[in-house]
């Protein structure tokens, strides 16, 4: 199993994270559209970490389940946590002045999406894209 990760501290780390994601997606064998989906999702997750928590990590690994091959992206941070997960997953909800596409967008771009968060301790988001 292949694990790679990037610590997100500066704006440049967002670029590094999505470059890593794009390379891994290519290696697994995703087509151009899925590569764009994965890269974009990682960019959104990394930017969330950079904007809201100051420090965190994006880990990317290849996963298999039966005959299925996929790429798992884990975004973890030790930030303030998300107080209202349901609202954070609503379209158009934003606290940063962006377009508010963040989390619901990531959910749509990937196949599986899981969010674990504790207020005051941090957030862990796992998102998987399966190779069709």
């Amino acid at each position: 199993m292949n694990i790679d990760s990037v610590d997100i501290v500066t704006e440049w780390d967002i670029v590094a994270a999505r470059q890593l994601g794009r390379n891994e997606a290519k290696k697994v064998g995703f087509g151009t559209v899925d590569q764009a989906r994965i890269t974009t999702a990682i960019s959104e997750l990394a930017r969330n970490i950079y904007l809201y928590t100051g420090k965190g990590n994006i880990a990317i690994k290849e996963v298999t389940e039966g005959n299925l091959k996929g790429l798992l992206v884990i975004a973890s941070d030790e930030g303030p946590g998300i107080a209202d997960v349901r609202r954070a997953l609503e379209d158009g909800f934003t606290t940063s002045g962006g377009l508010g596409a963040g989390l619901p967008g990531v959910k749509r771009l990937m196949d599986d999406f899981k969010i674990e968060t504790v207020v005051g301790e941090g957030t862990k988001i796992s998102a998987t894209k399966w190779l069709r």
């Binding site: 559209v33 764009a36 989906r37 158009g92 377009l99 596409a101 967008g105 749509r108 771009l109």
Partner: peptide, 14 residues
């Protein structure tokens, strides 16, 4: 705008 980019933008809700 490339097809892959258009699709991801739409799925993002943009």
């Amino acid at each position: 705008i490339q097809p892959a980019v258009a699709i991801t933008l739409i799925e993002l809700g943009i």
